[in-house]
Amino acid sequence: MSEEGVAGLPEGWARVALGKICDIQAGGPALRKKDQVRAGVPVVRPGDLRHRRVSAHTVAHLDPEHARGLFRYRLAAGDILVTRTGTVGRAALVTEGESGWLYNTHLLRVRAHDPSQAPYLLAFLADRRVVDWLERRAAGTTGMRSVGVRTLKDLPVSLPPLDRQRDIGAALNAVDEKLRVHEEIVRTTTELRETLAELLMTDRMPRPRSFGTGEAGSSRTT
Rank of each mutant, 00 (worst) to 15 (best):
S2C: 05
V6F: 06
A7P: 04
G12V: 14
A14Q: 13
A17G: 11
G19P: 06
K20H: 08
K20W: 01
I21D: 07
C22D: 11
A26M: 08
G28C: 06
P29S: 00
R32K: 00
K33V: 15
V37E: 10
A39F: 05
G40L: 09
G40Y: 09
G40R: 08
G40H: 09
P42N: 00
P42I: 00
V43G: 04
V43R: 02
G47I: 03
D48A: 14
R50A: 06
R50S: 04
R50L: 08
R53K: 11
T58D: 11
H61M: 14
L62H: 05
D63T: 06
D63H: 01
P64F: 11
P64D: 06
E65Q: 05
A67Y: 04
A67G: 13
A67F: 09
A67E: 14
R74E: 14
I80V: 15
L81K: 01
L81C: 08
V82L: 05
V82R: 02
T83H: 04
R84F: 01
G86M: 10
G86Y: 07
T87Y: 01
T87G: 02
L93A: 08
V94S: 01
V94K: 03
E96S: 07
G100Y: 06
Y103A: 13
R111G: 06
R111N: 04
H113D: 13
S116A: 15
A118Y: 00
A118L: 08
L122T: 10
L125N: 10
R128N: 04
R128Y: 05
V130A: 03
V130E: 03
D132A: 10
W133C: 01
L134W: 03
R136F: 03
R137Y: 02
A139G: 03
T141S: 10
T142A: 11
G143K: 04
R145T: 06
S146W: 07
V147W: 02
V149A: 02
D154I: 06
D154R: 03
D154T: 05
S158Q: 13
S158T: 14
P160V: 15
P160E: 09
P161Q: 12
I168P: 14
I168W: 11
A170H: 12
A171G: 08
L172Q: 07
N173A: 14
D176V: 10
H182P: 00
E184F: 15
R187G: 12
R187E: 12
R187Q: 10
T189K: 07
L192P: 14
L192R: 12
T195N: 08
L196R: 11
L196H: 06
E198Q: 14
T202Q: 04
D203P: 08
M205D: 14
M205H: 09
M205F: 15
P206F: 11
P208H: 07
S210D: 13
G214A: 05
S218W: 07
T221P: 00
T221A: 12
T221E: 07
